[in-house]
Design a protein around this nucleic acid. Structure first.
Lengths: 122, 122
DNA sequence: CTTGACTATGGACTAAACTCTATAGTTTAG
DNA sequence: CTAAACTATAGAGTTTAGTCCATAGTCAAG
């Protein structure tokens, strides 16, 4: 898959993807004879994961750690297990924070309903 | 509560809090006679919410919208309900993304366990 | 062949979100 | 009282994460 296609598929711009390649966030794509990049499925998965993690407030540094863990196969299984568990904990922390935020909004919405009910009550 | 205390309570630096004040992300704190800021509970709640939302990938612009919704009391209930519902949807989207990320990590961890099991199997 | 759409590159530029600097007043503990 | 720790300010400086620019090769359709 070439650059324009992958822009569409991932929602990331060419420049952003190039930036990620330069920062070693993704596997270096193979090149055709004309110098064009070809992105295989693995890289697409990486980019989708980056896009997702970015939207969740992970820094590129953190995301890089994650992609190394998930896609590079350079770590020993023991090391990987340890690091993945840490990442999992970070995610649980964010899940908690999101739930808290959601609760706050639900509370405000509930307050609005009660306010409305008061307006409508006889 | 004065600045150093609030730094500790929120995990945000003085400069960051000042920045948020300047950007109108928080209610302007009252001042003592000596010019020192005093932060009441409402502001502490605001700062904690900002800290949380920031860690979840919301931009300061988005966070500002949220604090207006939750803390300012300037919007009509109908408008508020609409906007809060939108924010709630955004959070649900992030919850989904987090779950997907967590699944990917769990899958990798599971793969490691199975790899270990294979090593240990007779 | 031509033209427009695609691709590439390196490096300059931008925006968001702080962080630091220089200066100076106030508080607190010894 | 003294010195260190606290507070304040405005504006300059830094970091992160892209985005743009200028240039030029390649592809595809007419």
């Amino acid at each position: 898959m070439r650059t324009k296609d992958i822009e569409e598929k991932t929602g990331l711009t060419r420049d952003t993807i190039r930036f990620y390649e330069k920062e070693n966030l993704i596997t270096i794509p193979r090149r055709a004879d004309n110098g064009y990049r070809y992105y295989d499925d693995k890289i697409i998965r990486q980019l989708k994961m980056i896009s997702r993690a970015k939207a969740l407030g992970f820094t590129l540094k953190e995301i890089k750690e994650l992609t190394v863990l998930l896609y590079s196969g350079e770590l020993t299984p023991t090391k990987m297990a340890g690091e993945l568990s840490k990442k999992r904990d970070e995610i649980d922390e964010k899940l908690l924070k999101l739930s808290e935020l959601k609760s706050e909004i639900d509370k405000a919405l509930k307050g609005l309903c009660e306010y409305k009910d008061e307006l409508n009550s006889p």
